[in-house]
């Protein structure tokens, strides 16, 4: 249940929340845009405690482009994604510790289901204020990972 996810969010940690609230107004530069939105380069992550651990990724170039995202640390599929990032994409464990990895969520047409695109995670480097969406060339990572598996 997403309800239980929201209630049990680790954002109960005040320091964690404060840090994320600080970060939310920082513009993030996406050098390649996002697939499908290549011309949009500046984004921000909006963290609201009411919807944590979910957050919103919003384009600053085109504010109507906004998506629900979630840090993969809340998802069982995180180990799989991290392993692929390290193995196939040559991202070192040290670098992976410095960045946040999110996935983009999609709401089903009947608004009853949320799925996460585990095949194309977002990497956000808060130190450099930079982001990139990678497409992982792996068949075992689903395009539609059902969140009721959480």
């Amino acid at each position: 249940m997403y309800n239980s996810m929201i209630k049990s969010s680790s954002y109960k940690n005040k320091d964690d929340l404060a840090e994320h609230q600080f970060q939310q107004n920082q513009p993030l530069h996406f050098r390649f845009g996002l697939p499908g939105f290549e011309s949009l380069r500046e984004f921000r992550v909006i963290n609201k405690k009411e919807i944590a651990p979910f957050a919103i990724l919003q384009s600053l170039d085109e504010p109507r482009v906004s998506m629900i995202i979630i840090n993969i640390k809340y998802l069982p599929v995180q180990k799989q994604i991290r392993r692929v990032l390290m193995d196939a994409n040559r991202i070192t464990p040290e670098k992976l510790r410095k960045i946040d990895v999110y996935v983009i969520l999609k709401v089903s047409a009947d608004k009853q289901r949320l799925t996460a695109n585990a095949k194309a995670p977002l990497l956000i480097d808060w130190e450099r204020l930079a982001g990139q969406q990678l497409v992982l060339e792996r068949d075992d990572l689903p395009l539609e990972y059902h969140l009721n598996k959480v």
Binding site: P35, G36, I56, V107, A120, V135
Partner: peptide
Amino acid sequence: LYKHICLENKNAVLST
């Protein structure tokens, strides 16, 4: 695959 991700991203954009 890239085109597929493009479509997924477009479908993930929140409507008003």
